[in-house]
Simulated assay, not measured.
Amino acid sequence: MKKYLLTAVAAATVSSQVMAMSETLETGYTETKYPIVLVHGFLGFDQLVGVDYWYNIPETLQQDGAEVFVATVSNTNYPEVRGEQLIEQVEDILAITGAEKVNLIGHSHGGPTTRYAGSVRPDIIASVSSISGVNKGTVVADTLMEWSDNSDVFGTAFDVFISGISGFISFASGSDLPLAPVESVRSMTTDASVIFNAAHPGGIPESDCGEGGYEYNGVHYYSWAGAKPATNLLDPLEPITIAFSQFFPDGVANDGFVDPCTSNLGMVIRNDFAMTHLDEVNQMLGIHDLSETDPLTVFRTHANRLKNDGL
């Protein structure tokens, strides 16, 4: 079995952060019919130097009944490759749990990854939820690939830089899955997304900032996104989202990596949370805008939504 984390945190373990989120925990509130599988994005991991990608999210969901698994796919590669890796892990999860299907939740590049799985294996996928997914591409990838294609110097430097980061994450997280760093970025361009969406149209809106079909081939589609590149000056990762936000034209909302309108998929829960691209998965160590919605609350509420939808 390929290495991936099957999260099994005791329900009795309640962190002070989670308790602060809700004074009274509701037993069964997050108890979905099918297991929840979390799928990381570009340059993602399950755990890296002691830090979980989905910080406190599996524990929070499991407290009130959800069965949660954290998948590990290549931190850089085409969504089709990552999707096939995900399908293999979903099949293992079904064998372990006896469930018929799973609910997939993907962040960033995990959006197209989970959509691919839902598209080619709708028989084992109950729902796909995209968190700031690069569902219609991102201007960040467009710009980087334009620079790379038009300059041999930049192209070589970019390849070396992104390959170095991808390789380090793979080594440090103990993954031996195949990597394709530059190709992964190219798959997130607007042009590549048009081709991908034609092959896997489930949940994709026809309008620029509207909703898509709520259900396609029996798979239910949902999405939400943040729209602020900076939320808390104490967050050591915030300079990254602030820097990438400079790629967007003036006046275009973004979370530091994705325009929320381009992330819409299926039922749009919200695409204007006061969250950065990293806040959306409760990074770094849960530091976020303290005056706005806690990311953990968003996950709990969505698990309850899936439960109420019979998923």
Rank of each mutant, 00 (worst) to 15 (best):
F244C: 01
Y222C: 02
N271C: 02
Y29R: 15
N197L: 05
N254D: 12
I131V: 15
P122T: 12
L296Y: 06
G256V: 07
F244P: 00
V134I: 12
I162C: 01
Q246F: 14
R82C: 09
T27D: 11
A230P: 02
E26Y: 13
T32C: 09
T262V: 11
H288Q: 12
S291T: 13
D250S: 14
Q283M: 15
V14Y: 10
N75Q: 04
V134H: 00
F154C: 04
Y29F: 15
S130N: 10
G167Q: 15
M267Y: 14
E26S: 14
P295W: 03
T143D: 07
P79E: 02
G286W: 03
F161R: 11
S151M: 06
V14W: 01
D235T: 05
F247M: 11
G111D: 00
A71H: 01
L265G: 03
G118A: 09
T231I: 08
A11K: 14
A8W: 10
V252E: 14
G50C: 10
G110Q: 01
L5A: 08
H40D: 08
D159K: 13
N150E: 14
F158L: 09
H277N: 13
A95N: 14
F244N: 11
D250N: 14
S175I: 08
P239G: 09
P35L: 06
E280T: 11
N77M: 02
F154H: 04
A117W: 03
